[in-house]
Structures are given as structure tokens and as C-alpha cells.
Amino acid sequence: MLRALFEKTGRAVYISHLDLMRLFQRAFQRAGLPLTHGQGFNPRPFVSIALPMSLGMESRCELLEFQLDGVEVPGEEICRRLNDALVEGVRVLEVYEGERKLKYLSLLRCRLTLEYDRGIPEGAEDQIDALFRRERLMVEKKGKNGTVEQDILPMLKQWKLERLNPQELALEALICCQNPALNPMQLEAAIRVYLPGLSPDFTRCCRLEIYDSEQTVFR
């Protein structure tokens, strides 16, 4: 399997997971890079994105898996040709033969930017820090079978708070992203539930880097 490391920023953050797969299928076609096709009545070109991402999130570390059908093209050239065929905001950084299985992908470093239109409330950092030091932190999670409560703390490995400016507070966190996975927006949800006075007016989220369980960068 070939792997493409790509980023999704700007206007592209509004493209959904399914739409992004379709977008890549067409980009490969435009780039003259034939993909292998799946099985079934209407065989579709096969691409797979490692960690599906919610709408609106930005990322600098997405992985796409694919296979070329009957042609061999150097990674650098695939990368160049794809970027010429992709839309603004989706950019391939590197293409290579994937060596480790995706199941070893385990941790994600991400940044939530909490926006406070009327300024960051006094003592926000300390309160949030204390919240994440509790023993348990139950947060509702909407799943396929309705809403369930889960303790998010076992999936939160490290965190760091930083004031970017008087209105923006950055929360950088290292969280589990596979088996089990924590949606980083759950950290924001916890703040809303347990520290309502610190509910941000808006929160943006960005994936920064992915790692295996040993915190080695995963490629």
C-alpha cells in the first residue's frame, strides 16, 4: 500500500470525510494515476483515509492509503502530480510505501483554540488544568446507538494551555486516536459541562501530529 501524508486546511475543512474520498478519487484520475478498483457491482477506485475527521477540523497529519493499478510512479512524482490536481486546502506533503500497519497508529497531538470574544476569563488555565486532573471526567458521546457517557481522562495523555492573545486560549493535547479514540472536541464539551463559565464562543480544532503508542511519529 502506498501512503500519502496530506494536510487539510482553509476552505477544505468544510469537506466531509466521504466527499474527501471522492475528491481524491477524482484527483488521482485527473493526475493520470490509475487507482486499483474495489469489488462489487460498480467497482469504485479504492482509497482509504486513516482517521476519519469531523467536519470543520483542520489537519497537518492525515494519511491516505491507495494502490496504483499497473503503473509504478516514484513517490515524489505522485506527490507533485496530485498536488497539481487537488483543490485549495488539500495538499499532499509526502508519498511513500507504508511500512507499519495502520493499527499501530495510536496517539494524536492536537490543538484546540478556545475563542472568547469578550476576553479569556480570569483563571481559565488553572480551572481547566484542575478539571483534567480529576479522577474521572464523564462526557456524553453521541454514537450510533444513542448517547453514552464515557470517562475521557484515560484517553487524555498530556495537555498544555497557552494564551495566544487576550481572546484565544490554546489547549494542546496528546490523546488516543484509535482503539479507543477520543474526539478532541470532547475536551471542549467537558469544559462546557463542568466549567460553564469558561464555555468558549467558538472552538477550532487542528490535528498536529500522529504517533504510535511509544510516541514515535507514525508514518
Partner: peptide, 14 residues
């Protein structure tokens, strides 16, 4: 981010 299918409003297509 508060509406359905926001990509309808952003442009930026191929």
C-alpha cells in the same frame, strides 16, 4: 459549522 453541508457555501472547487 452550524449548518448542514457547509461545503455548499464555500466555493474552492476544482
Amino acid at each position: 459549522l452550524s449548518v448542514q453541508k457547509p461545503a455548499r457555501y464555500t466555493g474552492g472547487e476544482w
